[in-house]
Nucleic acid binder design. Structure first.
Lengths: 343, 343
DNA sequence: GTTAGCACTCTCTTCTGTTGAGTGCTAATC
DNA sequence: GATTAGCACTCAACAGAAGAGAGTGCTAAC
């Protein structure tokens, strides 16, 4: 559907004003704030047209208009220009995120935090670093009698650990040899390439220590399973309190509740990959509880491997131009920092 | 101040009813619900006395009475009996918390979670495990060129790590020797006994690798500093949404905000140690933002070493009897599980 | 010391009228 | 034919008034 220039200007005016004030926008206001060179009556006629087309709606007869979700969709698809961060902002972010970094989890945490502070929306990063994560070392550390800790250090700096039982026959000294065997065999392997067979192949070398090896291999396998999980970092949920659409406690509670659920982001972001910024507006979302929210997100990859998603969650009445630009800019920064970290 | 038996019964009746309903309690209601064998008029007279003593207050002339903070204080100090968890509940909790445990952080997380589910208040655990935490091993793991990871495994299963630079002159193979040197020298040392001098004493043995050692020692020192920080686990903040006293968005926001601040629990729990359960009611709290909340908490120690605090945060209108009992019971469980873990 | 009775107080809810922003329609104008 | 002034109309929001209801304090009787 094509809109003529004046209708586009009016749609944009309604959207900008409504996003800013959260109040229905009247014809007078539009004429006053944006110099259109026509009278309120003309604007009213145009608005009636836009309403008929489904881009605007009226809360009640004597109120102004607000953009419908379809109106936002049209704006986002056909009119919006993303507002990227300024080079100065990008520079500052880059510095904050990469300073004294120890591991990828810190990158994730700081990024999510700064993104939410920057935009004043709730921000999230989903990250499954194991796709690119190589094993750097495997250590069996003796703990109290009968117990050891399997410690796996990975290239992204993430450290996985799991306690195992060790049989009485094994001396703490033996663990050192076994550790270097593990490290020698597994160093350089990606988690995504690690599988049961690779682990089994080590068994032959350690015939006399069957029980220990079984336990250690089991631990590694568990860690492997665990490592495929996506890690989610969520920040700035308190920003929701600012939005007038969430002044209803019940709604807010439901939303904050669903955000804490493990599976939420998997469900909400489902199939969307690719490098563009995706926007899901209101009822376009599959997850029931966020049908009054919008998602602005993109996926990010390192060396061609899909790593996860990064995005923002806000009301339908959202500054999509700013949100989309910020998400895109921050994606570039994160990818850069992570590449530096693991290169 | 001493209260006669009937005044005590009436005070208790008002507290129980008010905690349950969140509404001012009238004389009729009390007579109806608790068989006192006297008429509403008598109860009114007694309530007027209790109000004069400062234990009850009236929101307005024609409303019932609600307990004042002083009334709660008197009840808590002189009348309350803690409701401990049942042996069955304790058993179930113990199982949930200790199942397949890898490290003390998991204990903390699960405990906080179950405590909040159990009581329907927000729960927290502050934990500074390093007081009891011995070093089990120190490893320098080669990462990408020029970088290594210092990995410290501790007896509580917590793993600390920090990235350091390594000079070109050092080969990855060298790191193994240095690792075992570190482990040999430091294994069995408590973090609280670890200090600069202990670290310096290793320097002599590694004359040729000065830069590396400097970096590694620096990292250890940083980890040492970091490890003294208290870790806070907070759960069940969503429970606050249920309480009618927090139906005001602004208040709720302020509270959730302050709870996220790093320093909050240090300030709020300040000087209170000792094994009893402490209760801070409303304005007894020093921290401005929680002067409408109550804290029920206790400190816990392992092998005579103060470890941290465990407690609940709720409205002044709180089931102190249940809260205090739960906190006490859960403290026993946590101490037990942690002892098992590090013994 | 206890209680019935009663006037009184104060919040909460409901109802009603008023205000004001904004609309849609019509007829005049460019 | 598009634009606009003018005007009647609509509806949410607000304020004030009236009524209901819960609960009190006081007084006098038991």
């Amino acid at each position: 559907m094509h809109l003529d220039e004046r209708k586009r200007m009016i749609l944009e005016a309604v959207i900008r004003d409504y996003v800013e004030t959260a109040e229905p926008v009247g014809s007078r206001t539009i004429v006053r704030k944006h110099q259109l060179g026509v009278s309120p009556a003309t604007v009213r006629n145009e608005m009636a047209d836009l309403e008929e087309m489904g881009f605007l709606e009226q809360p009640h007869t004597s109120a102004g208009r607000i953009p419908s979700e379809r109106g936002f969709r049209y704006y986002v698809d056909c009119m919006m220009e993303k507002e990227q961060l300024t080079p100065m902002e990008i520079d500052a972010l880059q510095r904050v995120i990469s300073e004294k970094i120890n591991d990828i989890n810190e990158v994730i945490r700081r990024t999510s935090l700064t993104l939410s502070q920057l935009t004043r929306y709730a921000s999230f990063i989903v990250c499954a670093p194991m796709n690119i994560n190589e094993i750097k070392s495997v250590q069996l550390v003796p703990m109290r009698t009968g117990k050891a800790m399997v410690v796996v250090v990975t290239s992204a700096g993430v450290i996985l650990h799991k306690r195992i039982d060790i049989p009485d026959s094994i001396q703490p000294v033996d663990l050192e040899g076994i550790s270097s065997l593990f490290t020698r065999n597994l160093a350089g392997t990606r988690f995504s390439n690690l599988n049961r067979t690779a682990l089994e192949s080590m068994r032959a070398e350690l015939l006399g220590k069957r029980q220990l090896i079984d336990n250690a291999l089991q631990a590694l396998e568990d860690l492997l399973g665990h490592s495929e999980e996506e890690k989610v970092m969520l920040s700035g949920t308190l920003n929701m309190f600012n939005e007038p659409e969430f002044k209803n406690l019940e709604k807010l509670r439901t939303i904050l509740g669903i955000l804490q659920e493990e599976s939420f982001f998997r469900k909400a972001l489902d199939d969307c990959t690719g490098s563009e910024v995706k926007i899901k507006i209101g009822k376009e979302n599959q997850v029931e509880e966020i049908k009054e929210l919008s998602l602005v997100f993109t996926s990010y990859e390192i060396n061609g491997e899909e790593m996860g998603k990064i995005g923002l969650l806000g009301p339908v009445r959202m500054e999509y131009w700013k949100a989309a630009g910020s998400v895109e800019s921050v994606r570039e920064i994160v990818v850069d920092v992570i590449r530096q970290l693991i290169r």
